[in-house]
Design a protein around this nucleic acid. Structure first.
Lengths: 339, 339
DNA sequence: TGTTAGCACTCTCGACCGTTGAGTGCTAAC
DNA sequence: GTTAGCACTCAACGGTCGAGAGTGCTAACA
């Protein structure tokens, strides 16, 4: 592919074509550009430029007498300009829209996904940050009916997980508390990995309540596993059907299937820690998503955990608007979760 | 509408029409029935019967030279036969399919929804039972970093909920345990409603730690609220796009939107406690769902809590097969959750 | 009285056009 | 380098037509 830089007039024209195509979803002709965007140039001139742009790989023609359609390369150029440092403003309306809808902290993530999808009218994804190296802060057994107890592990970051385990019928609340104290004393400050490894050592000292130890080991490994795989929520998946590029049912089906498969979905999301990313169709290397783009903005929680808010929609997407909305919701999330 | 009973031959023909229509999704002609189902009758005879059935409201004609299509009334008759007591067998394949996929107890519900949707190739819904009148069994504060504590409430049914509350910095693990003991002593055996009401009374005795009491009140009310609204999970929503009746994108969009709105979704589910229900299109009184049916099977957890597994798909659905699959998964769920 | 063959009729669907209009590339003039 | 003009291409639209499916009706038959 030809990578010579293009002059500023070509770029202006290219941008105009993309803008128009984003609005209309149909191939853009030279006359449209000459009348709506570059009024000082005739359609013939535009035509020459468009012909050049096509040769350079920025435009494509669905068929000879249709207008031009931007290529992936064109979108790339377009969004790279948008992503130049400091050029993504926050959309205050998006922020307000989101803030109004958050009522319960427990489901901020879900709410964020819904708010983004409603606001942008695209499909939204929100990802909670991975947390590695969690350390146990407290470990406690809470009595439950019928010889069970609830094992609760709290980590230094405040993450909580619990599971029900069986214990000897004889153990009452006080006995369980005593065990909890001892366990906490031994295990506090250790990472979840450590805890799993150490349990062999302690089983002797504990004098037999292997059930409890097994429960702890299981829960610790589960927590470690869960905290290492990010949690991701999707909102407004039906929104894709708003767009003519997905009026083909087969395409829509493929799209929706990807959203329901966690693994594939994760593969769409960026793995770096860029403030913003835009991944355009084929760049993602997943056939079902060829007509799509994924736009994300990262948000910070605490010192070094970061998650993403994102939008998945057709490649023809008002990237500027979407980025601003994501930026706003992302920063709102940072504030809320940062406490 | 005419409600005279129809004779057995008419019914056989009607059933044949429905069966054929379920397979092919296209209007059924008299000749098809005469050749594939009622080989002893000529197409002309079938034609006469079909004409009668149309007059009785069981069949409709999309246009004059098309075949007949079953009406809602016809489906009703058809499924009522299927639902006659003792006529829904369990599908062992469905049970196996589901059982193989369950690994972690925490997400049985999600797994069930996925398994059902994959197995039947329809959209699945699974509902956890409502639990009213929950009584507190244990109440415990678990120390957390930085002046917080985790408040855990366990109910007699084994339901667990927790929330983070702020406590005076001075309180260590032992102090929190002492408070937990006292709280449990006072509140054990009370319903969640009681707990909320009683908190006023105890605030005096507690000598000031209003934060803790407030936390309990909040959590109790939240638990009460959550346990009163059922949790429902959807799986395989994209499956609807497999069926030609939803190749119209607008219809598909409406369908998917309903699934994403909890309230509308709940309205589709039955509120009784029947072992099986089939609700056909217009019977649900929701325009978007006119071309759909909702089939559910209930499953029991404990003495008197029951939830549902269900399938949402086009009215033209192999009800027998779907019911058997649901029945199997439902009973598997009962076993798993019954412990 | 119920069943059936035969036939005319209706209506959808797909194929096959000509027409229209948008848009292009090329040429020649400015 | 820009632009007007023109011939050319091609998708989209609309109309026509024949084929095929299916019906209702009639008349004959058991």
């Amino acid at each position: 592919m030809d990578d010579r830089p293009i002059d500023s007039r070509k770029e202006r024209i290219l941008r105009a074509i993309i803008d128009d195509y984003i609005q209309t979803a149909s191939p853009v002709g030279s006359r449209t550009i000459s009348r709506k965007y570059e009024t000082s140039l005739s359609s013939a001139t535009i035509r020459n430029e468009m012909s050049d742009l096509e040769e350079l790989g920025y435009l494509a023609q669905p068929h000879v007498s249709a207008g031009r359609v931007p290529s992936v390369k064109a979108y790339r150029l377009y969004v790279d300009r948008l992503l130049e440092p400091g050029t993504v403003p926050q959309d205050p309306q998006a922020k307000a829209y989101f803030s109004q809808r958050v009522h319960q902290m427990e489901d901020v993530i879900t709410t964020a996904a819904q708010a983004i999808s409603e606001f942008t009218r695209y499909t939204a994804v929100v990802m909670m940050p991975k947390q590695l190296e969690l350390r146990v802060s407290t470990l406690q057994l809470v009595p439950m009916p019928r010889g069970s107890a609830l094992l609760v592990i709290v980590t230094d970051t405040g993450a909580i997980r619990d599971t029900v385990i069986r214990v000897s019928e004889g153990l009452d609340g006080d006995a369980l508390y005593a065990i909890s104290r001892m366990l906490t004393e031994h295990l506090a400050g250790r990472t979840l990995q450590d805890v799993q490894e150490m349990l062999g050592t302690y089983s002797r000292q504990m004098g037999g309540d292997a059930q409890v130890l097994q429960g702890i080991a299981d829960l610790a490994s589960q927590m470690a596993r869960q905290s290492a795989t990010d949690t991701v929520t999707v909102g407004g998946s039906h929104n894709i059907l708003n767009y003519p590029e997905y009026s083909d049912v087969e395409k829509a089906r493929a799209f929706l299937s990807v959203l329901e498969e966690k693994e594939k979905l994760m593969a769409l999301l960026p793995d770096g820690r860029d403030a913003f990313t835009v991944r355009i169709g084929p760049e993602m290397g997943m056939e079902e998503m060829d007509g799509c783009s994924v736009v994300t903005a990262s948000y910070q929680v605490g010192a070094d955990h970061n998650g993403f808010v994102g939008v998945i929609g057709p490649t023809r997407m008002p990237y500027g608007r979407v980025l601003s909305a994501l930026s706003a919701v992302g920063s709102a999330l940072s504030e809320m979760l940062g406490e």
